[in-house]
Design a binder for these strands. Structure first.
Lengths: 369, 369
DNA sequence: CGCAGGTCAGAGAGCGCTTTCCCGCCCGCG
DNA sequence: CGCGGGCGGGAAAGCGCTCTCTGACCTGCG
């Protein structure tokens, strides 16, 4: 240990401490290279490289000697040098593409505070780590930021992109495709683009919700929709209407929110005001459903006895809600993992066809319906 | 656009598509280099490098000529090549160090689903982006994974580390310090280590909670503590006891949870069983407080009229709770940003003294107390 | 016994960039 | 008018790695 512990007291940053750190600096400046290992093992650089990368038949004896030398020297391959010649970064970028506002925002808005983000990260990492690939995190808001990102990417920042686009008319999917950058989206692109994606069958999920509500005996079912231009929302709304129509309900009252808790509360209030006799409601995501619960509570409705509520996402908000939400679970981690696998395959073989994988959602029954 | 859109149908990955992609591949293989820019500008590589990096006085005319050439060629510096010679990755790693279990877990456990994670990411990114530094995400569980990480880091994976240690006796802070890797922790290390950190004044936060409860007229105040070996929990508990003692309360009933909603519910239930006359409770984090609310509701207690509840964190769970939680807010984004600034400073100047910065928490009054 | 064919290790050429070293020029002063 | 000094630009040496090319050696067959 080169420095004494400093814990517990408030020492101002900015002071320099002399001494031990210097020798540490010196130690860092000279890490073992292939050359060093080769010298120790008594072979050429090329051979060490072959052994370390496990290529071609190398004499088993030499093999052992080289590995011993690697251990002895504490050698770790230099990533930059390797990247330079292989033209591979060994890194995949997770790009969150949001609307303008975040670009200069100090803390990048609401999204990161959403558990949604973490679930995606978890899924991506579960595939990347076994593959020995690093994950880089990027956030883009403004159009110039998108262009900059594409530049960075072309230049080898990352070998591919897992794209989370939250912006209804996002240019990024198109830009990436044009630049020939391997990319896979989680959630279908808002506008058709030649890009692979993984999604959940939102329509089918909405149908599950409708089934549940109907099976409970609900007769007057309302809808709290999400933002008009977001694909996930569109699909859920469409699925809801189709499923209702199939059961004979030509029309249902609806109000739209923007996927936030507050907007859900407001939408539910409007819905209730216009249709006091509602006995069931499908809310296009859990956050809004949580808000809807508040509105229903305030209006004196018991859930699920007076009004049954089904959400969508099975986010942590669903379990936190009072009563816990019956909701449609989409396997976000699995989807993110699948997207990552698709991406790695495409990086390996760029000529692979653009593909889409649609996962089936599942109804999670809790207390709200 | 090189390929037709494939949206809407399930095409199997694995098929190859001939044609356009080939020329795209060729296009990618030959990106403009410094050499190209130099040729176009009619100067040497060295000069272009100087202009691009803004070093030394270059003739203003040439300066303009070079930038024009850069634009014309669409040049972007190759990161790997630059890293190789500068020995800088231009990347900072955000390392989440958790306990064993996650290491081989498919989806890396609960943590990523916690909004906590996202807030830290947001704070870190808010500093990194203006500085033009990339963010790499790493998760380590098992001891071997920690050692591997240190190896990767030494070899130039990243220039420094923002460390989130969730594991009470984590070896990583020590390992990083020993290896001479620039690192800053968010939250103090569980065991003293020569590593900079940023933290919130947990004791002071607990004191705020106590003040609030007392000011409301609570007489019999209980405590739902967090895990025994986690620093944040220890400090909050200590702060609670000290503040209570200062007001004449020598002892208070308490039960411990492990920071999860369920454990909070269980702890509250135990507390209530043993001390039915409680009229106030401080819960060491919001998630547990949310659980406590459920237990109180089930026990027929009204919040805050019968029992007032104060949480800690001001996580999204606090707003979601019914009633919304009065809680202690620690400025996690600000702290993460501060940690990142500290890290960048230390990368720039490795001889800086190990430092700690403690932020003051604030009481956020909502309905629960 | 000679030669084709095969296998495996080493030599060396870069990958694209930064940076040192050096040279040529110009200015100012003696 | 001569010379010293400073400044701006070019040549070139690597950074650590991969990978092709080459050559040595061995085997087996004609």
């Amino acid at each position: 240990m080169a420095e004494p512990p400093q814990t517990g007291n408030l020492s101002r940053p900015g002071e320099r401490v002399p001494g031990p750190t210097a020798e540490r600096g010196a130690a860092r400046s000279r890490l073992p290279t292939l050359e060093d290992v080769a010298r120790v093992a008594g072979v050429s650089r090329a051979t060490v490289s072959r052994v370390v990368n496990g290529v071609r038949n190398v004499d088993p004896d030499l093999h052992a000697v080289v590995w011993a030398a690697v251990d002895a020297t504490g050698y770790v391959p230099n990533r930059a040098a390797r990247s330079l010649v292989t033209r591979r970064a060994g890194t995949v970028a997770l790009v969150v593409s949001d609307s303008e506002e975040h670009d200069d925002d100090p803390f990048l808005g609401r999204f990161f505070a959403d558990p949604f983000f973490g679930r995606v990260v978890g899924g991506v990492l579960s595939v990347l780590r076994p593959a020995g690939v690093q994950l880089g995190l990027h956030l883009v808001g403004s159009p110039p930021a998108r262009v900059r990102l594409v530049g960075d990417l072309r230049q080898g920042q990352a070998d591919g992109v897992v794209l989370l686009s939250l912006h209804p008319d996002d240019a990024l999917p198109g830009l990436l495709a044009e630049a020939g950058i391997a990319a896979v989206m989680v959630g279908r692109p808002a506008r058709p683009a030649p890009i692979s994606y993984v999604d959940v069958a939102n329509e089918a999920g909405a149908a599950l919700a409708v089934e549940r509500l109907l099976a409970r005996g609900c007769q007057r079912i309302g809808l709290v929709a999400g933002p008009e231009h977001v694909p996930a929302s569109q699909d859920r709304v469409a699925g809801f209407r189709q499923a209702m129509a199939r059961r004979g309900y030509a029309w249902s009252p609806s109000e739209a929110g923007n996927f936030t808790r507050e907007s859900g509360e407001a939408a539910m209030r409007r819905l209730l005001a216009a249709h006091p006799d509602l006995d069931g409601v499908f809310v296009a995501n859990d956050l809004m459903a949580q808000g809807a619960l508040v509105a229903l509570h305030e209006a004196g409705r018991r859930v699920p006895d007076d009004v049954a509520v089904v959400g969508f996402d099975d986010s942590s908000a669903a379990q936190a809600a009072q009563p816990p939400l019956t909701t449609v679970r989409h396997p976000l981690e699995v989807m993110a993992a699948e997207a990552t696998r698709l991406l790695l395959a495409r990086i390996e073989e760029p000529r692979l066809r653009v593909a889409s994988v649609i996962h089936d959602p599942v109804l999670v029954v809790r207390r709200s319906a």
